[in-house]
Write a protein that binds this DNA or RNA. Structure first.
Length: 488
RNA sequence: GACCCCAUCGUCUAGGGGACUAGGACACAAGGUUUUCAUCCUUGCAACACGGGUUCGAAUCCCGUUGGGGUCGCCA
C-alpha cells in the first residue's frame, strides 16, 4: 500500500525548556499549528535542550501541559513519539556527531581552541576599531603539531563551521527573498567544547533529518537563517521554506518581558482567559482575515488562516483588546458549562463558595448568578469581583461606595426599603414598587437614587443591573445589609 | 558599528496605481437603553513618518532620509 497521507508537508515548533512558555513562543506555535492543520501537514514538537546549564525537565513538562491547555496538539513529539524521533535534542547527540564528522571530512568544519576569554577580547578589540565583529579564523590553519600542543595544555576544542564567501538567499514566505552576503558572517561554532551541538547546528541537522518542509518562527531568527542554510546544504539536505513571523512588543514598543506583567501563557490560562479567546487574539497579532471579521473559533481560524496574509511588521500586545475578545467568547458558552468552569475559581477565593460539595440547588443558584454576571466577565477569575454580592452575608466595601454610605441619603433610603420589604421572595415587580416608594418619599432619582442602593447592597458602584441583583438575594441578607448601612 | 527586516488612526489592522473626501475593531468621548455603573446600541475623535522620483494619476512602485526592531555568543 502506498502512503495515503495527503501531503508530506511537515512543520515543527521547537522551544527550549529554560522557562515557562512565553506569549511570543505560543504565537509561533499557534501559527505552525494553524498552518499544519490547514494544510493537513504533520506538526512536530521538538525540545531544544542543548543548553545543559539552563534546560530543565520540569520545563519540558510545563511546555507540553501549557500547549495542551492552550488547545494545540501535535502529531510527533517527546510525549507521543513518532517516526523521526527522539524529539529531544539531548537524545540525538550521536546524530550531531555523525554529521560533524561528515563536515570535518569535507573540510567544512574545523577545530577551534580559542578560549571564551580570548574570543571576548577579540570581539572587544574589533568593536573598538569599528570593525565588523566576526571570528578571525585564527584556528583554521592550525597544524597537527599545534593542535596536539594545545590539547596537551588541557584545551578541549569546539568545532566551527567554515563559512565560504557566497550569497545565500532565504526564500521567505512572508518577506520574499532575502539575500545575505556571507562575508559578514564569521566561522561560527557548531559543536561546543562540552560535546553538545550549538543551536545552529542542532536546528539544521534536525530540520534536515526530520524532513521539515516549512520553518515558521520568529523574525529574530531571520538573520540566523543563512547559517542554517549553509549547514543544511553542505550536509546535502534541501533547505526548507521559511516564514519569519513579526515580533510581539509591549506597550512601550520594547520586546515583551516581565516588565510588561504577564508574559507566560500559563499566567493567562490560570487567570481563566478562555483558550479559544487567547488563540483568537494571538492569531490577530500578525494575521488578519482580510474581511472585517475579528471573532473566530479555532475551527474558523484553521479554515481561514493563510501564511501569505501574515503581516510583516511587529505588533504591540494589547491587554484591553484581549479582554474584549475574551468577553465575546465568554458570551458563547452555555450557562451550565460556564458555571462548571467558574466553580474552581470561586473555591480558590477565600470566603466564596467554600463548601466542598455543590448540590443541585446550589448549582442552580450559581448558574443564575453567572447569567447575571456573564456580560462583565472577560476571564473566569473576574467572577470574584462580584461573587461576594451573591454568596456572602457581608459584601466587601469599596472606598467610593463607603463614601456614599456615609451620606444621609443612604441611610434614609435604607430605612424606607427596610420598612417596605415584604416577606416573600423578591421579584421584579416588588423591586419597582419599592423603588418608586423611595423615589416618592425622598424625591431622589437617577444616580442619586441608585448609587446609594447599589452601595448598600453590593458594596461598590458598578456591576450588574440592580433589578437583576435583587431577585437573586435572600431577603434576610438584604435586610442585614440595609441594617448595617444604618450603623455606619 | 556592520548586516538584515519593518513603517496606515494611541493600539491591532484593511488597502497590492484611479473604487480613498483611507474602511473595520479595541481604547477614548458624547448620547441612548422612557430611573444607576464596567454590558449592549448609536454617533464622534483619530492615521498613510519625511524628501525625492516614476506616472495623466501614488497609501499603493523606485531611491534616499529618519525612526523602530533583529542578528553579529562555546544562549536558544
Amino acid at each position: 500500500m502506498p502512503d495515503v497521507k495527503k501531503s508530506s508537508v511537515r512543520v515543527r515548533f521547537a522551544p527550549s525548556p529554560t522557562g515557562y512558555l512565553h506569549i511570543g513562543n505560543v504565537r509561533t506555535a499557534l501559527f505552525n499549528w494553524l498552518f499544519a492543520r490547514k494544510s493537513e501537514a504533520d506538526f512536530i514538537l521538538r525540545i531544544e535542550d542543548t543548553d545543559s546549564l539552563r534546560s530543565r525537565e520540569d520545563y519540558v513538562e510545563s511546555i507540553v501541559e501549557d500547549l495542551s491547555r492552550f488547545g494545540l496538539d501535535w502529531d510527533e513529539g517527546p510525549d507521543v513519539g513518532g517516526s523521526s524521533g527522539p524529539y529531544r535534542q539531548s537524545q540525538r547527540i550521536g546524530l550531531y556527531a555523525k554529521h560533524l564528522e561528515a563536515l570535518l571530512k569535507k573540510g567544512s568544519a574545523y577545530e577551534c581552541f580559542c578560549l571564551p576569554e580570548e574570543l571576548d577580547a577579540m570581539r572587544k578589540e574589533q568593536a573598538e576599531q569599528g570593525k565588523t565583529i566576526r571570528y578571525s579564523g585564527k584556528c583554521l590553519h592550525l597544524s597537527d603539531e599545534e593542535k596536539r600542543k594545545l590539547r596537551s595544555e588541557g584545551r578541549q576544542p569546539s568545532y566551527r563551521f567554515r563559512v565560504e564567501n557566497r550569497q545565500v538567499v532565504v526564500r521567505d514566505l512572508i518577506r520574499g527573498d532575502v539575500t545575505f552576503d556571507t562575508s559578514t558572517i564569521g566561522d561560527f561554532i557548531i559543536m561546543k567544547s562540552d560535546g553538545w551541538p550549538s543551536f545552529h547546528f542542532a536546528v539544521a541537522v534536525d530540520d534536515g533529518e526530520m524532513k521539515i518542509t516549512h520553518v515558521i518562527r520568529g523574525e529574530d531568527h531571520l538573520t540566523n537563517t543563512p547559517k542554517h542554510i549553509m549547514i543544511l546544504e553542505s550536509l546535502g539536505f534541501d533547505p526548507p521554506r521559511y516564514a519569519h513571523l513579526p515580533m510581539i512588543m509591549g506597550q512601550d514598543h520594547q520586546p515583551l518581558s516581565k516588565r510588561h506583567g504577564h508574559v507566560s501563557i500559563r499566567d493567562y490560562l490560570d487567570e481563566g482567559y478562555l483558550p479559544e479567546a487567547l488563540m483568537n487574539y494571538l492569531a490577530l497579532l500578525g494575521w488578519s482575515s482580510g474581511d472585517n471579521q475579528e471573532i473566530f473559533s479555532s475551527r474558523e481560524l484553521i479554515k481561514r488562516f493563510e501564511l501569505a496574509s501574515v503581516n510583516k511588521s511587529a505588533a504591540v500586545f494589547d491587554n484591553k483588546k484581549l479582554d474584549w475578545i475574551s468577553m465575546q467568547h465568554m458570551k458563547e458558552i452555555p450557562d451550565v458549562k460556564l458555571t462548571q468552569m467558574v466553580i474552581p475559581y470561586l473555591k480558590a477565593e477565600e470566603g466564596l463558595c467554600s463548601r466542598k460539595h455543590i448540590n443541585e440547588e446550589m448549582f442552580d443558584y450559581l448558574k443564575k448568578m453567572i447569567n447575571v454576571l456573564r456580560p462583565y466577565l472577560s476571564k473566569l477569575k473576574d467572577i470574584n469581583e462580584y461573587a461576594d454580592i451573591f454568596l456572602c452575608q457581608q459584601v466587601r466595601l469599596s472606598e467610593e461606595a463607603g463614601e456614599i454610605l456615609r451620606t444621609g441619603n443612604a441611610k434614609k433610603i435604607s430605612e424606607i426599603i427596610l420598612e417596605n420589604l415584604g416577606d416573600q421572595a423578591f421579584d421584579e415587580k416588588e423591586f419597582h414598587s419599592i423603588l418608586n416608594k423611595v423615589k416618592r418619599e425622598t424625591g431622589l432619582k437617577g444616580k442619586d437614587l441608585f448609587m446609594p442602593i447599589r452601595a448598600v447592597l453590593t458594596g461598590r458602584l458598578s456591576g450588574p443591573e440592580l433589578v437583576e441583583v435583587f431577585p437573586l438575594l435572600d431577603k434576610n441578607v438584604i435586610r442585614k445589609r440595609l441594617e448595617s448601612a444604618l450603623k455606619i
